[in-house]
Design a protein around this nucleic acid. Structure first.
Lengths: 341, 341
DNA sequence: CCGAGCAACCCAAACGTTTGCGCTTGATTA
DNA sequence: TAATCAAGCGCAAACGTTTGGGTTGCTCGG
């Protein structure tokens, strides 16, 4: 058990105070405590290390950073952590980072440009070694600004042309959802399209619409409703779709949360999810399978994306050449589309 | 290893480089850029500030912390951010902290003691000004260690005797759920009890069982299954309950995610959620209301808890006297218990 | 006209680390 | 036996900031 000897008497325990206790120079302590203790006798190293442990020494991160210029921290920007998809990605990021001896600091930007800027400023002034951006949007001028700082970064979840990114193939995902519904005989469908400034929303929707169009059933614009990525946004969009003069027989939602909102709207319209209105989600969160009506969803490897983004970033930090990755999505068919049609 | 070789022409912009540009002393720049620029002429302040902005100056957090000993950072420990309840609390924390000029850094500890310790170590070596702990458990020896560091902290979501905490009244919440089911005529019920080392799990379960016992229908131990707080854990626990010789007519789940797992198990057992098996959740997440069968749930004010924990911590930092808070939960009755019984 | 008072600014010492360099030892080698 | 050498350690200079205490000038009341 590590127990500090004089908790209140002695101030914070630093290299200097350890050195005093051990009767050696402060710099010797520093070396002894470093990963490769070169130029210090083995028994001295051992003595100093146990002493440091007993005194409850913790290296001061601020001083370390100030001296070395490196923080072993990577900054992460996400729209919202209450979105389980992003939280899962972040979990993958944090895991991989921890394993590599890095720590992460995350910030919610809520798809708000002002917040993005201030969060970015914060992370940069905290001198993160690199950044992982989960909230990139088309038409933002933050990326060029960021490039000027020379701090390496990778995008995750959402793409931007010309930037290194780790995503799933969202066009393909949209296509999978569309083909599934076409096979089941759906001809008129609605889309809860998410935010068109996010590549996820834009590409999933595009893949979906293109496939229906190619099959001879182009989807009219009024059947495609933009939304955010949350339950309530999904609900609102679905309500609009359900009020259309000719009701569709299926709705494709941009992610599982909006799909749940869609389910609620369908239910309150007096329709049975699955048999009377097919619903398809995206991401295949854990809960999709367990819903009272199992949700058909396009599975994307979220944790893996997170981990991969970290590995890519670390490679960049080492000056290696890196490339973007687009992982393959898979459709998981369940009761929300398969029930007795 | 190559050392301190700066790739860009212009080095990092510091107080010194601004001072050189402005033709004043570095300390004058520091004062001009501080919140209350005392002892610097108004026009000098203006000149320096615009210059700093033009050069893209960002105060170095490490140096600032090293000098002042304060970081304006608060550390947050949660079990998992993929648990929407915790993510929502964290969102409240981050909001309130940002408004107060503080930043947060969060870490997932997964209810793992080793991880808790290492995350705590990390946050302390980053010199956070204070801590908010969302993952406290009975029987852990981390709290006494933490107290020795003199870093102030508050618990959120889960309580521990003798510690400042911001929670909802979980015993009361359990009671609300029980009374609701009793009123509907349920006599034999199952409980997915969560983790008994977390006060949430223990107290919600206790409030629920006590109420049933008082009503004359004590719940046998084999109808109470411990679990984690996630979808799969809920599903597994429910499967065990459904295999009991005498099947209950209702299941109380420790939170909404486990409740969804319960719903999946009930569905796959060939039963209708609501009419054939009542299900009650806890937290009333956004999605509870929108599920194909609306989930009856005990609402707890998550965002508010997060904000309150920050306010409490900031009061502690100012040396004020603070007290624990237990917010009141409210039952939201929906189809998962109300459907035609 | 002279010192007091004051505004505006400069100086330098910290904060806790890391790290190149130089100084002792004692042992090895020519 | 003396020159060489490496191991083991001490010394001191940074890193960028804040801040208590000078040091200038200047104004102004007596």
């Amino acid at each position: 058990m590590p127990v500090s000897k004089h908790p209140s008497r002695t101030g914070p325990v630093t290299l200097a105070s350890i050195a005093a206790h051990a009767g050696v120079h402060l710099s010797t302590v520093s070396r002894a405590l470093s990963a490769q203790p070169d130029g210090v006798g083995p028994e001295t190293v051992e003595r100093i290390r146990t002493l440091a442990h007993e005194l409850g020494y913790r290296r001061d991160a601020a001083a370390h950073t100030l001296r070395t210029g490196r923080t072993r921290m990577i900054g992460v920007l996400v729209p919202r952590l209450t979105d389980v998809a992003l939280a899962t990605i972040y979990e993958g990021i944090d895991q991989a980072a921890t394993r590599a001896g890095y720590n992460t600091v995350v910030a919610n930007t809520r798809d708000d440009v002002e917040l993005q800027r201030s969060c970015l400023d914060l992370l940069l002034s905290r001198r993160v070694d690199g950044l992982i951006l989960g909230d990139s949007r088309t038409g933002s001028n933050l990326i060029p600004e960021l490039q000027r700082t020379q701090v390496p970064f990778v995008l995750v979840m959402r793409r931007l042309p010309g930037q290194i990114s780790i995503t799933t193939d969202d066009v393909e995902g949209g296509r999978l959802a569309a083909e599934h519904l076409l096979e089941l005989g759906h001809k008129r469908v609605g889309v809860v399209a998410g935010d068109p400034s996010a590549s996820t929303g834009a590409e999933r929707t595009r893949g979906f619409r293109d496939t229906f169009a190619k099959a001879g059933f182009p989807i009219p614009d009024e059947y495609v409703i933009d939304s955010d990525f949350h339950v309530r946004g999904g609900r609102r969009a679905a309500e609009r779709i359900l009020r259309l003069p000719v009701r569709p027989s299926a709705i494709f939602a941009i992610n599982d949360f909006t799909a749940i909102g869609v389910m609620g709207a369908v239910r309150d319209a007096g329709l049975q999810v699955g048999s009377e209105m097919a619903v398809v989600g995206y991401n295949d969160l854990d809960l999709a399978e367990q819903l009272p009506v199992g949700l058909t969803s396009v599975r994307s490897p979220l944790t893996e994306m997170g981990e991969l983004s970290v590995h890519t970033l670390l490679d960049m930090l080492q000056g290696k050449k890196v490339r973007s990755r687009r992982l393959r999505p898979v459709l998981m068919a369940r009761a929300s589309t398969l029930n007795s049609r």
